[in-house]
Design a protein around this nucleic acid. Structure first.
Lengths: 358, 358
DNA sequence: TTGAAAGCGCTAACAC
DNA sequence: GTGTTAGCGCTTTCAA
C-alpha cells in the first residue's frame, strides 16, 4: 500500500518549515533556488501528493469539479446520444483543468435534493443536466436560486434555467423541407413528446410540412417511447393506417434504426418504397443499411459549449444563458424521391404487399 | 447563491456545542431526544450540508469514490461497449454508496502518473481500468504495488493485475462452432489484435474452426483497427480474396455493423449469400438489418462484477482476482446455412458476382 | 448527556 | 528568504 506522505514529512526531511514547503509548491518567487530544488527533489523522491481534501478545505474553495446529472435509467451510459454529449463535456472540462463527476438522478438523489447538496458540500462547483425530460419536475426548484446550473440540449419550459441546446425547431423544419423537396406527400412521424425540444421539433416540422404543401391530414403522428421497439411498432402501424406513406421521419436516429429494422423485416425496400429519416446523427447511423439521412445536431459540440458556458458562470458568476445551436442536414442513402406511383398528388392505389389491419 | 452553513452555525442557533451537533449527526445514542430533535430540525431548516472536504480530512479517510480510467479517445463515451460496462459499474457503486469519477488517460495523466496520485491524494479509493489495450504499457507499473486496481474486461499479459473479463476464449470457440455447425467452410475473420482478450478470442476461434473440420487455409484473417470503416474494407477484401467465403465473423458488433453495411452496398444478401456474426451483443445489434447473431459478453454484468470485486479489495484489502465470466450465443437473423452450392465440401465454382483478386 | 480541545493536511497572513 | 501561527469544518477522545 502507498504510505501517505505529507508536507510535514517533506519539511522534516529537508530540515525546513512547513510553510517553506508550501511556498515552494505554490511556486512562490521568494524562495531561494537551493531550497526550492531540495524541496522539489524530496517531494519527487518521497512521492508526495497533496491531500485534496485538506487543500480544498484550506482554500475554502471549489473542488474544481463539475457534476453531470443523468436520468436514472439503467442503460443510460450505453446510449450514444448521451455519450456524444459527454464527449464534449469531458473534452472541455479537461481543457479548463476541471474534473467531472457523473451522477444519476436516483430517487434517493431526488429525495435528498442532492443537486443542492452537491454545491453546498463543495463536491461540485457547477451542475450540468443531461437528457432530462419534462417529467423531471424537480428541475423547477432550480429556478430562482441563482445556482450554477445548466441544461445540456434540453429546455425546461416551466422554469428559467440556463441551457445550451440544438435548434430543434430548425431541425424539424429542415427535415420536413427535405422530405417535401424530394416529393413526399404522405409522411409518418415517429416521435417522443416527453421532452420539450421534441415538442418544439415536431411543431416546427408540422408547420413546415403544411408550408411545403403537404396537407396536414396526410401526415400521421405516432407518439411514444423513445426507443427502437416503439419505433418498430409505430412504423408498422403507420404503413397500415396509410399504405400510401412514402416517408417516415423519426425524431431520433435510434428510433430510425428501429424503423429500418422493421421495414427490412417486412420486406419494404428503403429508400425505393419508403424513405426513412432520423434526427441526431449518431456515429452508427452512417453504418446502417441503408446509411441514414439525418439532421446533425452536433451533440459533441453542444456538450462542449454547455461546459464552456457553465464554467464561465462558475468563474464569473451569474449570467443568463439561452443558447440555440445550428443544425445541419446530412443526406445519405435512406431518403429518395417517392416511387413514381406515389409521387402524384392524386392518391394512386398502392401496389404494396403490406397487409391491412384485420 | 447558497450561503454555506456549518456545524458551528447549527450549534450557535441551538445554543449547544459543536460536538453535540456532531454527535447528533453521527447518530450517537447518547444524546437526549429533545436536543437531537432540535438539532435535526435546525439542520433541516438552515439546509445544513456537511463539507465533504472537511469530513474526509477529519476522517483521514476514503472519499468513497472509485475512479474509472478510460483511454484518451475523443469519442470514448459514445462507444456503447464502454457504456455497457459503465452501466454496470455505476449501478453497483451506487448500491454500495460509492461515487464514481471517470477520468481519461490523457498524456498529462500518464506523465504525472495520476493513477498513483489519485490514490495518494485521496481522490479515489480504487481504480477501474476500462477498454485498455496492449499499448497501455503504463499499466505495467501497477504490478507489484498492491494497489486497489482492477481491469474491466481486459487482461494484461505482462503484469499481474487483477481483472474481471468475459471468457473470450469460450466466445471464440462458440462463434467458430456456430458457423461450422451451420455448414460454413470458408470463413473470413475481421479482428483487432491490439487487445489481449481479442488475441485470446481469435486463437481459440482458429483452433475450434480446425477442430470442426474447417481447413486452416480456408479461413482468411483480417487484422486492423477496431471500427466500422476498417471492417467495411476488410469485408470487401475478404470476398475478393476468396469469393467462396460464406461467413464473416467480426470480433465486435461494431465491426459487424460495418460489414453488414458494406455487404448491403455491394448487393450481397445476408444471410442468404453470406452469414455475418459479431461479438459483444450491443443493444443496437438487435436492430441491425438483419438482426445480428452474436456472442453476448454480458458487459453490464462484467462492469457490475468488476466494481463489486474492487470494492471488496478496497474494503478488505489485498486479494488476487482473475475472474473469467461466461458468455452466450445469441442467434438472430444474420447467420444461416451457406447457400447450397457452397455447402458441399468440394469447392463448387462460385456463382457469385464478386470479382476475384487478379 | 454534553462540552472542550486536539488534530486531520494544507494555505496564507504576518513576523523575523 | 524562511518560520510561526491561525484558521478551513469536521471527528473524536477525554473531561465535566
Amino acid at each position: 500500500m502507498l504510505r501517505t506522505v505529507t508536507m510535514k514529512d517533506i519539511a522534516e526531511e529537508c530540515g525546513v518549515s512547513l510553510s517553506t514547503v508550501s511556498l515552494v509548491l505554490s511556486h512562490s518567487p521568494r524562495i531561494s533556488e537551493p531550497t526550492r530544488k531540495q524541496v522539489m527533489e524530496t517531494c519527487e523522491r518521497l512521492g508526495y501528493q497533496p491531500n485534496t481534501h485538506a487543500q480544498n478545505l484550506a482554500l475554502r474553495a471549489s473542488s474544481r469539479t463539475l457534476c453531470v446529472v443523468l436520468p436514472d435509467l439503467t442503460d443510460i451510459f450505453s446510449d450514444p446520444y448521451v455519450g456524444l454529449l459527454l464527449n464534449g463535456i469531458y473534452a472541455t472540462a479537461d481543457e479548463h483543468g476541471y474534473q467531472v463527476s457523473i451522477l444519476r438522478a436516483t430517487s434517493r438523489f431526488l429525495r435528498k435534493r442532492e443537486h443542492f447538496n452537491l454545491l453546498k458540500s463543495h463536491r461540485a462547483d457547477g451542475l450540468l443536466f443531461v437528457a432530462s425530460s419534462l417529467y423531471d419536475q424537480y428541475l423547477v426548484d432550480l429556478d430562482g436560486h441563482n445556482i450554477p446550473v445548466l441544461l445540456v440540449n434540453s429546455i425546461f419550459p416551466d422554469a428559467a434555467i440556463r441551457y445550451v441546446a440544438a435548434d430543434h425547431k430548425a431541425a424539424g423544419r429542415m427535415a420536413a423541407e427535405h422530405l417535401a423537396r424530394l416529393g413526399h406527400r404522405h409522411v409518418g412521424v415517429v416521435m417522443g413528446t416527453n421532452i420539450q425540444t421534441q415538442v418544439d421539433l415536431i411543431e416546427a416540422c408540422g408547420e413546415a410540412l403544411v408550408d411545403c404543401g403537404v396537407p396536414a391530414d396526410q401526415t400521421i403522428w405516432m407518439d411514444g417511447r423513445f426507443n427502437e421497439d416503439f419505433a418498430r411498432k409505430a412504423a408498422r402501424q403507420i404503413l397500415q393506417e396509410n399504405p400510401c406513406t412514402t416517408a417516415i421521419l423519426t425524431t431520433s436516429d435510434k428510433m430510425a434504426a428501429g424503423v429500418l429494422a422493421d421495414l427490412h423485416e417486412a420486406g419494404v425496400s428503403v429508400p425505393n418504397q419508403v424513405s426513412v429519416m432520423g434526427i441526431d446523427n449518431l456515429p452508427a447511423s452512417a453504418h446502417l443499411c441503408p446509411a441514414l439521412t439525418t439532421i446533425d445536431l452536433h451533440l459533441t459540440q453542444i456538450g462542449s459549449r454547455a461546459c464552456e458556458r457553465l464554467l464561465a458562470i462558475v468563474k464569473e458568476g451569474e449570467k443568463p444563458c439561452e443558447e440555440l445551436r445550428p443544425v445541419h442536414l446530412v443526406e445519405r442513402a435512406s431518403t429518395a424521391p417517392p416511387p413514381a406511383a406515389m409521387a402524384t398528388k392524386k392518391k394512386a392505389p398502392a401496389a404494396r404487399k403490406k397487409k391491412k389491419k384485420p
